[in-house]
Amino acid sequence: MSGNMNITLKVWRQKNSNAKGELAEYKVGDVSPDMSFLEMFDVLNERLVSENNEPIAFDHDCREGICGMCSMFINGRPHGPKEGITTCQLHMRSFKDGDTIVVEPWRAQAFPVIKDLIVDRTAFDRIIAAGGYISVNTGNAQDANNIAISKDNADEAFAAAACIGCGACVAACKNASAMLFVSAKVSQLALLPQGQPEKQTRVLSMVAQMDAEGFGACTNTGACEAECPKGISLKNIARMNREYLGAQLCSEKM
């Protein structure tokens, strides 16, 4: 079932991390408003292959907005024009017939381009490895209901934990700061009693790793929150700053 929209795409093409990239233009016809944005790319890629051209490489996996793998910068906004969704949840009904759409990869020093629209986000994994956990070995946990947690705190921890690690916050930030991502994990664990024993070392280690990865500083413009597909709140950054200051003042390790 094809549709009746005609779209012009300007897509970033870059052979590999060392090559110079450029925008290439593609016309895509018969676009259905029910197609997702990535399905439109599928259609284009099928055509490119049948024309014996190399298709556009882009990251994607679950296509239901939860794995955090998709990452396109669409018309100057991470995950496109609509709020609260990822690129894979964006549908062509959000565009008009005849639109020209510019699609680029995330732009950040800490996220080098691998190919076309694919970037390397392993810096996020290294930040988590630096302290984004509770040190509890398997098998020695107490009964789950021995820890009572107020519903408000549990809900707030959950809201912070909903981060999908896509990197839109970094892409949206003029400084390419990762504060929203890091603060979401720091907050989740700081809000829970299980997270208390390590709270100081956690925030110090994670921030140190964030800086080492080359992410920029936070200047509180709030672009990250505005573009976050999961609505992660700026409050988390405030909480992390509080935790960080507290840890710096009190930590015996400093």
Partner: peptide, 12 residues
């Protein structure tokens, strides 16, 4: 038990 100890925010 293990997941709660890790800080998994189950509904309460």
């Amino acid at each position: 038990d293990q997941c709660v100890a890790q800080g998994v925010p189950f509904a309460r």
